[in-house]
């Protein structure tokens, strides 16, 4: 098998200037189940699909509260996310202690980005293996950021990370205008769940057990809905299974392509646009 010499640590550039270890860390995100975030003028919603390792086991937590005005969704290595969320909580408490003001979402997310960057530049440590969606409502309004182990941070109106998240992004792109104009928090959550539903594998449905919902906004402190509390939101959906699995003649080519790959392997599905992705992480966007 071809052996790549340039991918053993994060202090070695490939001849084309790439950092493979960092790119592999980004792959770790895709091993995790999907999380979706979206913003209207007043609210931010995070929804996520939970997994359980075995039938009798509990589901892995996907949403973590940071402060009354901020929360995160994770995809990838959950323990890494806990380290980062603990750090975020500390930052948030510091801001309250020192300035008596809620931590700005941008400050929060850049603080972990800078922390993550250090792990991409020294031998003997690995980059974090988790992607985060950070949602916050602060004095400059509602914000959603995507954090990556490369140390890159981008602000989005809608974002999705984790397995088969491309499908959710497609949904968000198509419905961007309505999402932006949405006044009601309920509608925003429904849009979030619709997007999440599109990432489902063939034989899985959204249930109150495997779905987490959270919202933060002008009038709402960061609230997580889990277990039975999720049912009220699922009841608002027209269906809890993936549209593409319900209806085979999807008119959209891009989607159809995705579907095929989906059914083959989660990994490869996103491999399709992975070049794209790597480019964007590693360079300038």
């Amino acid at each position: 098998m071809f052996r790549n010499n340039y991918d053993n640590d994060s202090v070695t550039y490939s001849p084309t200037g790439r950092l493979f270890q960092v790119e592999y860390a980004l792959e770790a995100i895709k091993q995790g189940s999907a999380a979706v975030g979206l913003v209207s003028k007043k609210d931010v919603v995070l929804v996520a699909l939970k997994r359980n390792a075995e039938e009798l086991g509990s589901y892995q937590k996907k949403l973590i509260k940071v402060d009354d005005h901020m929360g995160i969704a994770l995809a990838g290595l959950a323990p890494d996310a806990r380290v980062l969320s603990n750090f975020l909580r500390k930052q948030a408490m510091n801001s309250k202690m020192i300035f008596n003001r809620p931590l700005l979402t941008s400050k929060a997310v850049y603080s972990i980005a800078d922390k993550a960057q250090e792990n991409t530049q020294s031998y003997g440590s690995r980059p974090y293996g988790v992607g985060l969606l950070v949602a916050g409502y602060d004095e400059s309004g509602a914000h959603l950021y995507e954090f990556q182990p490369s140390g890159s941070v981008l602000e989005y109106f809608g974002a999705a990370i984790g397995a088969r998240s491309q499908a959710a992004r497609t949904y968000l792109e198509r419905n961007l205008e309505t999402i932006r104009e949405t006044e009601s928090p309920e509608e925003l959550i429904v849009h979030g769940l619709n997007a999440l539903r599109d990432t489902l594998p063939q034989d899985v449905e959204l249930t109150y057990r495997n779905t987490s919902v959270s919202i933060v906004g002008k009038e709402t402190k960061y609230t997580i809905y889990d277990d039975e509390d999720v049912q009220q939101w699922l009841d608002k959906l027209d269906s809890v299974s993936n549209a593409r699995n319900r209806d085979d003649d999807d008119d959209d080519d891009e989607n159809a392509d995705n579907e095929q790959q989906d059914n083959q392997q989660d990994q490869q599905q996103e491999g399709g646009d992975s070049n794209n992705n790597e480019d964007r992480m590693e360079t300038d966007e």
Binding site: F99, R101, L104, K107, E139, S140
Partner: peptide
């Protein structure tokens, strides 16, 4: 980030 510290802070 356009935020400025006010008198309270």
């Amino acid at each position: 980030d356009k935020h400025e510290l006010g008198p309270e802070e």
